[in-house]
């Protein structure tokens, strides 16, 4: 599904991704974890082509990211901070994205699921952070694409919306899709992720299943495992 080879990215003098290789095969939920500034978002944005890499190759479903933009038709992306053009109404935004992608979609169902009907004619600038995030989720899940990239999907969600989100993710997984998630909420990660990719200082520090992680760190719960892996690095 995604092949990343020898990926380098610098912002100014700051080396964010350093010779990173990553191979994600199709199917399942992959959690990308790592401390702040470890390059999670940069990695995701490189895959999406929003960040232009300095060196290396990324291929999504065999298509090189550099030369092609059409591969993004196969990706649904949920950005970290739900920033939308403020003077657009929710309905217009959804219609616009539909118009841009020209794909069958299930917006109605999702709007019902997250109870967004009352907000449909409100301007995005007037919405609360949680509602914006719901709109964000609708936009990300409404198309049927083989690859989903979710950057901090839980931000600002109330418990019932969070449950709906988890169900959604499981449903997508059941359809054999590949889902990339970053999150700081480890409970959430533990619940949904099949595999964990741990990034540190611009490199893949660990890649494997939850159990492999626990075994390696001799910890029983994920929070400690992650903490352990971080300190392991410090001691090394």
């Amino acid at each position: 599904m995604i092949q990343v080879n020898n990926l380098h990215k610098k912002f100014g003098k700051n080396l964010v991704l350093d010779n990173l290789d990553l191979n994600i095969d199709g199917g399942g939920i992959f959690a990308i974890l790592g401390p702040n500034g470890s390059g999670k978002t940069t990695l995701i944005k490189s895959v999406l082509g929003m960040v232009v890499m300095d060196k290396g190759q990324i291929a999504v479903m065999g298509n090189s990211v550099k030369t092609n933009w059409k591969y993004r038709k196969e990706i649904n992306y949920l950005p970290q901070i739900a920033n939308f053009p403020g003077n657009l109404r929710v309905r217009e935004l959804i219609k616009m994205i539909q118009d841009l992608r020209q794909k069958p979609n299930q917006a109605e169902t999702l709007i019902n699921l997250f109870k967004l009907e009352p907000f449909m004619d409100k301007r995005l600038a007037t919405l609360s952070g949680g509602t914006k995030q719901k709109v964000n989720i609708v936009l990300a899940f409404m198309f049927d694409s083989p690859l989903l990239i979710l950057d901090e999907p839980t931000t600002g969600l109330d418990p019932s919306a969070l449950i709906s989100l988890k169900e959604l993710i499981q449903k997508e997984k059941a359809q054999g899709k590949t889902i990339l998630v970053t999150s700081h909420i480890l409970r959430f990660v533990e619940e949904v992720a099949d595999e964990i990719v741990y990034l540190l200082e611009g490199k893949i520090y660990f890649k494997g299943t939850m159990d492999q992680l626990k075994t390696r760190t001799n910890q029983t719960d994920i929070e400690h495992a992650i903490a352990a892996i971080a300190t392991e690095q410090e001691h090394a």
């Binding site: 082509g49 920033n83 841009l100």
Partner: peptide, 11 residues
């Protein structure tokens, strides 16, 4: 924001 939203779309 609009730009960033669009950048992730197949455009």
């Amino acid at each position: 924001e609009f730009t960033e939203l669009l950048l992730a779309q197949p455009v």
